[in-house]
Design a protein around this nucleic acid. Sequence first.
RNA 1: GGGCGAUUAGCUCAAUUGGUUAGAGCGUCCGGUUUACACCCGGGAGGUUAUAAGUUCGAGUCUUAUAUCGCCCA
Length: 873
Amino acid sequence: MPRNFDYADAEPRLYAWWERKGWFKPEVAGSNAEPFVVSMPPPNVTGSLHLGHALFGALEDLMVRYERMRGKAALWLPGTDHAGIATQLQVENMLREEGSSREEVGYEEFLHRTWQWKEEHGGTITRQLRRLGASCDWDRERFTLDDGLSTAVTQAFLTLWEQGLIYRGPRLVNWSPGLQTAVSDLEVESTEEEATLYYFKYPLGDGGHIPVATTRPETILGDTALAVNPADARYAGSIGKSAFVPILRREIPVIGDDSVDMAFGTGALKVTPAHDFNDYEIGQRHKLALVNVLNKDASMNANAGKYAGMDRYDCRDRLWRDMEAAGLAIKTEAYTTRIPRSQRGGEVVEPMMSTQWYVRIQPLAEKAMAAVRRGDIKIVPERYEKVYFHWLENIQDWCISRQLWWGHRIPAWYRDKDGDPEGEIHVGRNPPLGGGWVMEEDVLDTWFSSGLWPFSTLGWPSESGDLERYYPTQVMETGHDILFFWVARMIMMGLWFTDKPPFHTVYLHGLVRDRHGKKFSKSLGNVIDPLTIVDKLGADPLRFTLITSGTPGNDVNLDERRVDHTFRFINKVWQITSFINMNLEGDLELGLPPVEELDLPARWILSRLHRLIANVQHLFDIYQFGEAGSQILAFMWDEFAPYYLEISKHFMYSGTEDEKIATQRVLVAVQDSCLRMLHPFMPFMTEEAWRYIPHDGEALIIADWPNANTTLIDDEIEARMNLLLELVRELRNTRGEYKVDPGKRIKALAKAGAAAKDMAAHDYVFRRLCNVEELQLLAAEDPTPTNAASIVVSDVTLYLPLEGMLDIEAERGRLEGEASRLTQQIAKTQKMLGNDNFLSKAPEAVVQRERDRLADLESAHKQVTERLSSLPR
RNA sequence: GGGCGAUUAGCUCAAUUGGUUAGAGCGUCCGGUUUACACCCGGGAGGUUAUAAGUUCGAGUCUUAUAUCGCCCA
């Protein structure tokens, strides 16, 4: 067995082997196996792996490998998303670098170039996921623009249309001037920014004026009313009068509306229904005209009069100067307000009138809420259910059309009628017979196709074998940042089209941040490339660290020091395997010898192991994977390796043949279970290590998940062994305090009550673990050794004759400290046990534990004080 | 404005039906070439669990308020 785990060699070799063997495919479990299906959240096809991908990769692979080992037909279905805007932007950037543009090359050529780009870069992310060890069924890989998925998208669209749930019409939308497309509410991010609030006079027809404030003066040109609160004594008298749009001198009414905030600005509101969502509402209520003053590129249009053709911000400055000149300007002041920006380009989004396609989402949302309310779908962590409900309760119709070229084209056709090129509309896969029909140029929001992902990838709408066998899926694991974008829409669309919840559990993870909780950003220079870590340390350390660094729903602060630590843990597990491997000879019977034949340390480690297995099982059941991983690590590093392995050497080197074999079987059994449990966390090292211990089966990836054998969990055994180990730790500690050369073998004497038998029978524990040459048991009536340091644990006193080294004063100090610590604890415990409420209300087991503890403490205290009084003055 | 989360050792994090002495890693200090491992081993120091009240026999854990930071929604 190699001295160290060579991940660079093993990772590609093992991955290729697993894949070649077909072990990533659900069919390996047989046709009767219960399915366990996870749809991979499809990354952007042209993206490359970042830590967010690494986190979902680690978590999903963990779940899938775990369920595979539990005998399920585990299917992790991978794929990529065409990511409309993101991909189109990348290709546009490429064209720009060539000195060209999408308009210049034209629609056909642009799509051609984009597909080309996809072919060139599309494999990157999936190759990188493989490096992490992702056990996906790559034969089932899907892409949102595949023929099959496009069919599903069209089907979904047509169904909604036929049900009257899709409509097209002019509405106020969030318009992204740079991208030249509408975007949905979710794609707009508002941030607080420093802006200017402009105060000016709104002239009235009667020669007076009302002062008004705005942050966007250029929209004045599109005002169609002036609104005041009817309860506002200052202005109520003006309701019904006319006002005149500054500079343009267009006549508009002064209206009264309750929604006007009297306390904001001047208390009067200019109403621009075509460029503001609130104003649009007011406009609807008062049947106001809509005056659009912007072109699609956010320059001013003809309605802006002499400002036509100017950029929106140039117009803002110019108009304000003109108003100053006209004596209409009052003042400006600095003002912090929320500026809506495009999630993609970062440019300021303008509310603008535009004709778009919408989904009437209410009926779908109702079903989606009901499913979670009924518990058909559970969200982990649960608190996100509230967030989910809040969003769905206030949901707005979904604008699904995008003015992009890269995406699923909306299956609609137009024909000229009475000079209107869109006079006739037909929705369907194909145009109606007869000429003159032109296909809709808009494409669908990327999330429309993503919303179908759990079933479109399985062949829907065809009721094929995969859909029937693997749908609904089980767990949807993804980031909480796309709960609305994606998860809610999958639930809505899944329920609507398949009448089944697309999954029973949503597991949400957080963002991966740097170790100080900062977002990764190129400008901060704190970006960590997961592949750099994989190159340097292997995939296993990164996976284990990501999983154990956080809890569900919370952000993960990745500390690279933890990755290093995990790397060392992996080495530790390898070394344990290596130790076992080199201490075996010949064929070893698998499984455990009868428990009665086993010694205390063996029964102890088996009890600890099975307790661990039970804990890990429970933690997996409640999706606490991080804690599960940490517990396995703690067991191996703090119990198995330092104690049992060391103790086993006694039997290996000086035991009888039977003892030796029994010990070997225990070692192998424990390590085997640990490797199995660790496999989903760190598949590569565990698979490789497993080959070096006797095992049953072809590969760990398809081995059975361990079951806890509760008959092996034994409190009494653990308590007996704990006493010995506690003595060991105290002995080591005392040796340290007296600066006894660690290599020096010393003698120990013990007065042990009930534990005497265990100590005598397991004196090798002390020889192995704390270099005790000889352990001599004294009878109660024997004189206590003088000139010896003493150690008290429970009812055992150990004496270490340290001829010449013992400092009586130091020893007295040590014992006095010990006595006072014990006194305090005794007092605390007595107080607890003296409380009738505690005795009557606490569970019996807790009370009993305190009683036992008190007995131990009192016994120890008695011995310490005796010892103190026997020290020479 | 509404909602959610976080606040635990110098730093990064655990601690899930409330129950012994609140645990790890890194760092730090002391000591070690023990035949699995120096990618290691043994030992130590370091905590009023943000603050204040409350519920409880018992609170890091439950309740309320406050503070700070972060996120989501309007």
